[in-house]
Simulated assay, not measured.
Amino acid sequence: MESNYHTLKRTDNQLLVITHLSQLLTYATVFGGLIAPLILWVTQKEHVEGMDAHGKAILNFQISMFVYSILSIPLIFALGLGILTLILIGILVFVMPIINAIKASNGELPSYPLSINFIS
Results as ranks from 00 to 15, higher is better:
Gln44Cys: 04
Thr19Trp: 09
Val67Glu: 05
Leu75Ile: 05
Leu40Asp: 02
His47Pro: 00
Lys9Glu: 13
Ala104Thr: 07
Ser69Leu: 13
Ser115Leu: 05
Asn100Ser: 11
Ala104Gly: 07
Thr19Val: 04
Thr11Cys: 00
Thr29Val: 15
Ser3Thr: 13
Ala28Lys: 03
Ile116Leu: 14
Ile39Cys: 00
Ala104Gln: 08
Leu84Pro: 08
Ile73Trp: 12
Thr85Lys: 12
Val48Asn: 00
Gly50Phe: 01
Thr11Met: 03
Leu75Asn: 12
Ala78Tyr: 12
Leu92Gly: 14
Thr7Ile: 13
Leu38Tyr: 06
Gly107Gln: 02
Leu40Asn: 05
Ile18Arg: 07
Leu21Cys: 02
Leu81His: 09
Leu16Cys: 03
Leu71Asn: 05
His20Asn: 13
Leu109Met: 09
Thr85Gln: 14
Pro37Asn: 02
Leu24Tyr: 14
Pro110Gln: 10
Glu2Gly: 00
Ile87Pro: 14
Lys45Val: 05
Phe61Met: 06
Lys56Arg: 15
Asp12Arg: 10
Leu75Cys: 14
His20Ala: 07
Ile98Tyr: 06
Leu109Phe: 00
Ile98Gly: 12
Met1Leu: 11
Tyr27Ile: 12
Glu108Trp: 01
Ser3Arg: 10
Gly80Cys: 01
Met96Leu: 13
Leu88Met: 15
Leu34Gln: 01
Gly82Phe: 14
Ile63His: 02
Pro74Leu: 09
Pro113Phe: 11
Ala104Asp: 07
Leu8Trp: 00
Ser105Glu: 04
Ile18Tyr: 10
His20Cys: 06
Asp12Ala: 13
Leu86Pro: 02
Asn4Phe: 03
Gly32Thr: 10
Ile98His: 03
Phe94Thr: 15
Val95Pro: 08
Asn60Arg: 11
Val48Asp: 04
Val93Glu: 14
Met51Gly: 11
Ser115Gly: 03
